[in-house]
Computed example of a mutant assay.
Amino acid sequence: MSYVPVSRRTIRRHRESERSTRRLVIGLSAAAAAAWLLSVTMSTAVHVSGYAYNLAVVIHVLSLVVAFGAIILVDWHGFLWLIGRRRLAEIIRLDGAPTPLIWGGLAGMLGTGVFLNPHLNNTMTDVKLAAVLVLSLNGIMLIPLMRRLAHLAPGAAFQDLTVGQRVHLLLCLVISQACWWTAIIIGFINAQF
């Protein structure tokens, strides 16, 4: 790499951008944790059955399909970039499209989860709920990295990232998949009993 002189103004703008990203991550993390806590707390007070329960289950599963389907799409294209089959510019462009589906689906799951009469004294349910919280926070923790990736050259490869960025990306990918699959499997197991 060559040294490119940067003005003080550019450095100041970069620092301000980093601070605003940090504030955004903190705010979104607090909002996600509050929404999760509200959903779990309300689920202890709300008990439904019959048609309302069945409707909640249908909307919950549809929200899951939308959110997880979008996650699989993003993670798959990220993997293809990792092995050199996609360009970074494609990944950055693709990342913006499913984001509303992911967060909308997650909001739908939290909203309908209130009406599913969860057994909060069941350890598996607690693990599932923890996985949902962790996957939400994990998605938010990707924001700073994705903003940094957006500033790289369109043809940048995975190997062009710093070691910290590579670890951050891979760790978020593993956490995402582990939490989603944990929540899905436990959800279906709990639905059987």
Rank of each mutant, 00 (worst) to 15 (best):
W103A: 07
W103F: 15
W103T: 14
G104I: 15
L106A: 14
L106H: 05
L106C: 11
A107F: 14
A107K: 04
A107Q: 10
G108F: 10
G108R: 09
M109I: 14
L110F: 13
L110Q: 09
T112H: 08
T112S: 15
G113W: 08
G113H: 05
V114C: 05
F115V: 06
L116C: 07
N117L: 02
N117C: 02
N117E: 03
P118M: 07
P118V: 06
H119C: 01
H119G: 03
L120R: 11
L120V: 09
L120C: 09
L120D: 09
L120S: 10
L120A: 09
L120Y: 11
N121C: 03
N121A: 15
N121G: 12
N122F: 08
N122C: 11
T123F: 12
T123L: 13
T125S: 14
T125K: 04
T125E: 14
D126M: 15
D126P: 01
V127H: 00
V127N: 04
A130N: 03
A131T: 07
A131P: 10
L133P: 09
L133E: 06
V134Q: 00
V134H: 01
S136N: 14
S136G: 15
I140S: 07
I140A: 10
I140D: 07
I140H: 06
M141H: 05
M141W: 07
L142C: 07
L142P: 01
L142I: 02
I143A: 14
I143F: 14
I143K: 13
I143Q: 06
P144L: 09
M146V: 01
M146S: 01
M146D: 01
R147D: 01
R148K: 07
R148C: 00
R148N: 06
L149H: 02
H151G: 04
H151Q: 12
H151T: 11
H151F: 03
A153N: 05
P154A: 05
P154T: 05
G155W: 06
G155A: 13
G155L: 11
G155N: 14
A156T: 11
A156V: 07
A157F: 02
A157W: 00
D160I: 07
L161V: 09
T162V: 10
T162G: 15
T162M: 03
V163T: 09
V163Q: 03
V163S: 05
G164V: 04
G164C: 02
Q165H: 02
Q165Y: 02
R166P: 08
R166L: 06
V167K: 00
V167C: 01
V167W: 04
H168A: 10
H168T: 09
H168L: 04
L169V: 00
L169C: 00
L170H: 02
L171A: 11
L171R: 04
C172W: 00
C172V: 02
L173Q: 08
L173C: 02
L173G: 11
V174F: 12
V174S: 04
V174E: 03
V174G: 01
I175Y: 05
I175H: 03
S176F: 08
S176G: 13
Q177I: 13
Q177P: 01
Q177A: 10
A178I: 15
A178T: 15
A178H: 03
C179V: 02
W180C: 12
T182N: 10
A183E: 07
A183F: 05
A183K: 09
I184M: 12
